[in-house]
């Protein structure tokens, strides 16, 4: 099927997600979902002196939503919270590195929207 949407790196994140699991002593636990597709994720954030000390996520859903969550955790761990509050969606999309169709955009951005809800109380989603 020679599929760039399901390129190796995305499948790898989907099959073996990074930072997968829970943080029992998380400072912030935030659920997010796409009711239309049934994608769900929960982000566990441990804060450390103005930075994101540690992160875990749990979730289920399509490969795009779960791989994007896994990639996001790599991008945000250790970063200053101030920066993460305005973490740009495009940075995650660049990391995904694939053309996301409008129908699948909600899947690709579920994790970053959930992060912004966790830190700001709303996703600041532009749509």
């Amino acid at each position: 099927m020679g599929d760039d949407l399901y390129r190796e790196q995305i499948l790898e994140h989907y099959k073996n997600p990074h930072h997968f699991g829970e943080l029992p002593d998380a400072d912030i636990t935030q659920e997010g979902d796409n009711p239309l597709c049934g994608d769900v994720i929960t982000l566990y954030l441990k804060l450390d002196d103005g930075r994101l000390g540690d992160v875990r996520f749990r979730g289920r859903g399509c490969a795009i939503s779960q791989a994007s969550a896994s990639m996001l955790t790599d991008l945000i761990v250790g970063k200053p919270l101030k920066e993460l509050k305005t973490f740009p969606t495009k940075d995650l999309l660049e990391e995904l590195g694939i053309q996301i169709s409008p129908a699948r955009m909600k899947c690709a951005t579920l994790s970053v929207n959930t992060l912004r809800v966790a830190l700001n109380g709303d996703s600041g989603e532009e749509d």
Binding site: Y6, C37, G38, D39, G61, C62, A63, S101, C107
Partner: peptide, 28 residues
């Protein structure tokens, strides 16, 4: 394989199928 992934992959073959709750969430 999530239904959305399947529907996206078979679309590459020109096949249009629906993936989702089909407006029947209680049935899901």
């Amino acid at each position: 394989i999530h239904p959305h992934d399947l529907a996206t992959l078979v679309d590459r073959e020109g096949i249009a199928v629906r993936a989702g709750h089909h407006c029947t969430q209680p049935l899901m």
